[in-house]
Amino acid sequence: MIDWLFGTVLGKCVMTFLISLLPVVELRGGIPYGISQGLDPWLAFAASALGNMLPVPFLLLFVRKILHWMKRYPRLGRLAVSLERRADRKSSRVRKSELVGLCILVAIPLPGTGAWTGALVAALMEMRLKRALPAIYAGVLIAGLLVTLALTGVKALRFLA
């Protein structure tokens, strides 16, 4: 099993996908991992983008309920309050231009931004799923493109030509 996971192109794509599912790491860690494992940059981009996008609808639908549940327990409650404060700080930027702001928040490939943060902000702002999802997905694609181009430089543009 381990040989398959690290020794085949499909296995490397699966690992890249799984790494991109993780909060904080997201595709900002998935793309570099995939490329470092010898995947074509655009294949690493695709696997990472799909992995990063997968949890977003579930986060949008359930994050408020999960935070409410977490508040019943002292340690988890502190974490929930911390996450809400963080999202509130980020939401001030998003409120001005709503969907464009949400897209930009997700698209900036820096720590503290990304699909997980964008979904948290959108959920706490009570944005509808059908409005928030396209903005977050567009931000993920932009962030993935920026990370891929930063890692591969102009050589990656030959694929687009």
Rank of each mutant, 00 (worst) to 15 (best):
M1G: 15
D3V: 10
D3F: 11
W4P: 01
W4F: 15
L5Y: 11
G7T: 12
T8H: 10
T8C: 07
V9A: 11
L10H: 11
L10Y: 13
G11E: 05
G11S: 09
G11M: 09
V14C: 05
M15G: 02
L18P: 06
L18S: 13
L21D: 06
L22S: 09
V24K: 02
V24F: 12
V25C: 08
E26S: 05
E26P: 11
R28E: 00
G29T: 05
G30E: 04
I31P: 01
P32Q: 01
G34F: 04
G38S: 08
G38P: 09
D40A: 11
F45A: 02
F45P: 03
A46W: 04
A47Q: 05
A49Y: 00
L50R: 06
N52Q: 11
N52C: 10
M53A: 15
V56E: 08
P57M: 07
L59G: 03
L60W: 13
L60E: 10
F62E: 12
V63E: 04
V63K: 00
K65W: 13
I66Y: 10
L67F: 15
H68A: 14
W69I: 07
K71H: 12
K71M: 12
K71P: 01
K71Q: 15
Y73T: 13
L79G: 10
A80K: 02
A80R: 04
A80F: 05
S82Q: 05
S82H: 09
S82W: 14
L83N: 01
E84T: 12
A87Q: 04
S91D: 01
R93G: 14
R95N: 09
K96N: 12
K96C: 02
L105K: 11
A107G: 14
A107I: 02
P111K: 07
A115C: 08
A115H: 09
L120C: 10
V121G: 03
A122Y: 05
M125T: 03
E126D: 14
L129V: 13
K130L: 10
L133Q: 07
L133S: 02
L133K: 06
A135L: 07
A135R: 02
Y137D: 02
Y137E: 11
A138F: 12
A138Q: 06
V140Y: 02
I142G: 00
G144I: 05
L146E: 01
L146N: 00
V147G: 00
V147H: 00
L149I: 11
L151E: 13
T152W: 06
T152A: 15
G153Q: 03
V154C: 00
V154R: 00
V154M: 04
A156T: 00
A156P: 01
F159T: 11
